[in-house]
Structure formats: C-alpha cells, structure tokens
Design a protein around this nucleic acid. Structure first.
Length: 274
DNA sequence: CACGAGACCTGTTCGC
DNA sequence: TGCGAACAGGTCTCGT
C-alpha cells in the first residue's frame, strides 16, 4: 500500500485541498455509508451511521500509515493497506467500482474510500490511542535520534528487512522505502540488527529519513494500476529493478523473498552477512 | 522471542 | 490466443 510518504501526501491534499478538490477541514458530515461491511473495523455499521452525521472535520494528520481525521467528537482513522485510496468528489461524479465506504458532507462533496483488494480498514473511535498504541516512533520526528535508533537495533536479534517493516519497531516504512533505505545505507536485508555497528546504524538512520523525505517531496510513488499522482517511482534505486544495473556500481540488482516479501538489493553494495 | 505459513482480496502481468 | 501461475505499496493469527 501506500507507505508513509504516500499517506503524508494524501493527508496534505485533504487538509489543503488541490485544484480539483476543496479542503476537508470545516466540512460537516451529512451521512456515512458503508458499502463493504468488513471495511469498517469499528464500531458497528449501525453505530457508525448514527454517530457520524453532524460532526465537523477539524484536523487532518498522519500517524505511521494511518490517516487521522479529527471530527468534532470522534476520530476517523483510515488505513489504506495494499490498494486503498481516498478521494474527495463532488456529487456530479458518479460512484466507481470498488468504492467501499463513503462520508458525505453538506455542500455536495463526499470523501470516498476506494479499495479494490478490500484490505483497507476504517475506525471511528473516541480515543485514537486505542488503535495507534502499538506503533513505533515516527522516523521523521525530532526525538527519533541516531542514538535512539542504534539502541533500538541492539534490543532485537532480527533480520533488518522484516524488522524495519515491523510497525511496532518503527512506523511508516513499507516494502519500497525499506529496500531503498537499505540500499542507500549499504546494508543487506538479511543483516542481523544486533550486529550493526554504531556507524552503520547512523548511515541507516540517515538513509531512512532521506528516502522518506525524497518520497514526500515527489508526492509519493504511483505503481501498478494505483496512480496517486506522485512520481517517486521514477527514482527507485533498487525496488522492482531486478536485473537492472545498480545506480552506484552497475552490478545487476537481485531479488529474493525475505519474510514473505520480495526484497531488492545490490549484491555488491550490500554484501550478505557471513 | 523470531520466523514461516496461511488468510484476507482483486487485478495485472508473466510464462508456457 | 489462452490460461494458470506469480505477483502486487499490508497486517493479522497461528504453530513451531
């Protein structure tokens, strides 16, 4: 799915609006409608339909890969998982295939959660902490220091790739940005976290923040049939570039499956652990 | 605690 | 051309 930069881009667009869509803050909900029941994690559809009308959107933010839409009384949390997307559309725009949940507003606009694969989830809760509690630190926050990151790595005995994908370890990284960061840091995805030297941890810290910021600057990545407007996909170093030359040393990029996910890396720049 | 397999889903692309 | 396999930005649960 969308990873941190894609969710950040969507949050910014919802907050500020775009040439095609008005800003969400200030809008007042007229009704909710759940088209695919499993999309709504909590509460029940009946309660959702009852609770959401009349609430105003007050604030839009992001935590990890969750979109956080603050309403007058409750908080709407949205996770796009693999194929979810959020659109603000006017009443003139007809419904689309794969629309899963809709929040309608006074004034003729609606927020549409569209999700072909149906993995995405929406929560309407009083306390967002109940859903977000297990998330690790935000990699772009000030209190996420290289020193702290080194300590975190030392506390686990796990392979780097699955560890970085673990949202309770660090929030927001997915398959793309993890592969990109490991390549930039010159670290193999199978490297064990406890064997990382301070200096290597520092390089990984810089790399993680660099690729995330680069992703945000380019409005995220749009790949496969899910186009969200970003163009970071044109700047991938290794992700989905199997067999193509490493941008640093021209060695063909390799792919292997690690922890059920495909990993892309340069065997020259990212030597495998002994 | 760390890890692999399976589940949840649909759509696109690959390979024979 | 056609058809099944492989694959896709994620996360959960279960068994070892």
């Amino acid at each position: 799915m969308p990873e941190l930069p894609e969710v950040e881009t969507i949050a910014t667009n919802l907050r500020r609006g775009t040439p095609n869509q008005p800003p969400l803050p200030g809008m007042i909900v007229s009704a909710g409608s759940v088209l695919w029941p499993r999309t709504l994690a909590t509460p029940t559809i009946d309660e959702f339909d009852k609770l959401i009308p009349g609430q105003a959107v007050t604030e839009i933010s992001r935590r990890g890969k969750y979109l956080v839409i603050q309403l007058s009384r409750e908080t709407l949390l949205i996770h796009l998982r693999m194929s979810g997307d959020l659109l603000v559309l006017s009443d003139e725009t007809p419904p689309a295939p794969h629309d899963r949940l809709i929040v309608r507003f006074l004034g003729g606009y609606r927020l549409v959660f569209n999700d072909p694969r149906k993995f995405g989830r929406v929560w309407l809760v009083t306390h967002p902490g109940s859903v977000l509690a297990s998330l690790g630190p935000e990699p772009l926050d000030e209190d996420f220091t290289p020193q702290r990151f080194y300590c975190m790595l030392q506390q686990h005995h796990r392979r780097l790739k699955p560890l970085l994908l673990d949202q309770s370890f660090i929030a927001g990284l997915g398959n793309i940005y993890t592969d990109e960061a490991l390549h930039m840091a010159g670290l193999h995805p199978l490297q064990l976290s406890q064997n990382i030297a301070v200096e290597q941890a520092g390089r990984l810290w810089v790399s993680i923040r660099h690729v995330l910021q680069e992703g945000i600057r380019r409005n995220g990545a749009s790949i496969d049939w899910v186009y969200r407007g970003g163009d970071f996909q044109n700047y991938f170093r290794v992700y989905q570039r199997t067999g193509k030359p490493c941008p640093v040393c021209a060695t063909p990029v390799e792919r292997s499956v690690i922890g059920q996910r495909s990993s892309h890396y340069c065997p020259q720049c990212q030597p495998p652990p002994v």
